[in-house]
């Protein structure tokens, strides 16, 4: 009689039952003087409010960095940070980058070779030489 598989306790998975956005904070840095911040300044005036309203779980801070290119910096639950320089970008492009940081997990980017992942154990169970049909030598 084959052994029955051990029943495992359900592991918590983000998105199964509850979803916690991994991006916890977004910093918007701009310069009042530099021309590369023109798009950023327009974004802050026109798009930021809507973006922040749509993502109430993200803390949004805006602060100047005089004499520097504009930067978006995302802080994640895993303690990591991701920064994107948005110099000379249009407000729409900056919105795309902000969305990218918002959706990111905070993990390092990896090449995906096997697109399907599963945390479930194999339904066939673990192979055991003493189970199943015995071979007669």
């Amino acid at each position: 009689m084959p052994l029955t598989a051990l029943r495992s306790v359900a592991k918590p998975q983000n998105g199964v039952g509850a979803f916690i956005l991994q991006c916890k904070r977004l910093d918007f840095h701009y310069c009042d003087w530099a021309g590369s911040s023109r798009g950023m300044n327009a974004f802050l005036k026109s798009h930021l409010e809507a973006f922040a309203r749509a993502n109430p779980q993200i803390e949004v801070t805006v602060s100047p960095r005089p004499g520097r290119h504009p930067v978006l910096r995302g802080s994640y639950v895993n303690g990591k940070e991701k920064s994107i320089c948005v110099r000379n970008m249009e407000p729409n492009q900056i919105l795309e980058k902000a969305t990218l940081l918002r959706n990111a997990s905070g993990e390092k980017l990896k090449r995906v070779t096997r697109p399907v992942k599963s945390l479930n154990e194999s339904v066939r169970g673990i192979w055991d030489p003493f189970h199943g049909q015995k071979y007669q030598v």
């Binding site: 930021l48 409010e49 803390e59 801070t61 805006v62 602060s63």
Partner: peptide, 20 residues
Amino acid sequence: RRMHNLNLDVPNITVHPVRQ
């Protein structure tokens, strides 16, 4: 003024006037 009032309208926004 628009940036001043952002925090009142949307509480998750903080605007700093100086470099952090």
